[in-house]
Simulated scan of single mutants.
Amino acid sequence: MLTNAGADAPADHPGWRMPAETEPHERTWMAWPSGGYTLGDSWGEAETARRAWAAVANAIVEFEPVSMIVPPTATAEATRLLSSSVELYFRPLDDAWYRDIGPTFVLGPGGRLGAVDWLFNGWGAQSWARWELDAGAADVAIAAAGATAIRSALTNEGGGIHTDGQGTFLVTETVQLDPGRNPGWVKADVEAELARAVGAKKVIWLPRGLTRDSQTYGTRGHVDLLATFAAPGRLLVHDQTDPEHPDHLVSAQLRDVLAGQTDAAGRALELVDLPAPATLRDAEGWVDYSYINHYVLNGAVLFGSFADPSDEPAAEILGAAYPGREVLSVDARPLFARGGGVHCITQQQPRSAEGVRR
């Protein structure tokens, strides 16, 4: 089943490790929204989307470099709204969720930089998705970073995995075992490929994602709405406290699965609740608003706010979870209305030996 893996890097290359998001970054990669449902049907909707992406990039670039992939047809809008400090690369794209269509960067022995190029098929070949251009979107960052390409036979997205940087990974059964992504794969196949490509030593399987994310236009269960490692041994966990919301049961199931779990080093996991926003619905139905979908960068943590009473308590919890980092927020409602959040549109390139030399 794994015969197509590792086309550019030897399949038995020792020591690839996906660093934790909290480790030092060389830069952040993003992609500019330029078409389809992301921009909507009017100039106003399109401008809202562009400003949402720009707000994230312009906040991050104050702390670390940002490289933005921009379709050539969107050059004027990108240069109008982005800080001049944001580096631009030009390439046609279908979509703008670079966490999912871009590579997952890893480090090898001696700090060598690698980049895993997962197969991508529109979140499980969903009828509304287009991915002909996005299937090659990872190559831009791989080439620019000078990384060793690690080709994978696993259909996967960056939003579908989280790691503590020490070999513990969180995934969901509804993503990696999705028959629309990986027909015929079983858990052992996925775990073997994660071990080869990103250094997984223990994989913790969560049963499903949030309710709206499991419906039309969702990812079918990305983990970056559910839980994330604030530090080795410590997990921030999405907690929907309102019993009216269907995710109240999802949160309970999530906690049941994680309770008593240990990480790759044998440590019992400490679970820290990160309560969901008080807002339960929008015009489309139950929301999947989640403060878990934040991005940790050099010296700061950037989270999505929702003009919600829970925004301030969430900022306090995040500040305690990531001591020494400035806590920043951007309005994430335009992002979630389009199917994702701050974490979904960003992808970290870790600092490597090559990067330090440059």
Rank of each mutant, 00 (worst) to 15 (best):
Q348W: 04
P103I: 06
S352F: 12
F169M: 04
P103N: 04
A200D: 05
L113K: 07
S251H: 00
D263S: 10
Y37S: 15
S127Y: 12
A54E: 00
A252D: 12
Y98P: 07
A227M: 04
A135V: 11
G35P: 11
A115F: 07
Y295D: 02
L236T: 11
T174D: 00
A138C: 04
T155E: 01
A52H: 09
E173I: 10
Q261Y: 10
E47L: 12
I204Y: 05
L2H: 15
M18D: 06
P19Y: 02
A337H: 11
D263V: 12
N182A: 03
A7P: 14
T346R: 02
T219R: 06
Y89F: 15
V56D: 02
V190Q: 02
E77S: 15
L210K: 11
A332D: 05
A276C: 11
A307N: 15
V287D: 04
I101T: 15
N4G: 14
P207G: 08
A300F: 10
L236W: 03
Y217I: 01
T48K: 13
V198K: 07
E47K: 14
Q347P: 12
L280K: 14
T79P: 08
Q215P: 13
A276K: 07
A227N: 09
P109Y: 04
T168R: 11
D288E: 02
K202T: 13
L2Q: 13
D94G: 06
A138I: 03
G260F: 08
T79R: 15
R234Y: 05
G35Y: 02
E191N: 09
V203F: 08
V296W: 01
G114A: 05
T163I: 05
D213K: 06
N293A: 02
Q347M: 11
D273K: 14
H222A: 00
G209E: 06
H248L: 05
P109W: 00
D247E: 11
L269D: 01
D95M: 04
A337V: 08
F120W: 04
V86H: 05
S310P: 11
E47R: 15
E45I: 06
S34Q: 08
I292T: 11
G260Q: 05
E173T: 15
D331H: 12
I142M: 00
A137S: 14
R27I: 07
A278R: 15
P334R: 03
R181Q: 09
E45S: 13
T211G: 01
T174K: 12
D178H: 10
V61C: 14
P309F: 05
T346D: 03
E157F: 10
N121D: 05
V171T: 13
E354G: 15
D213E: 07
W29S: 02
L274N: 03
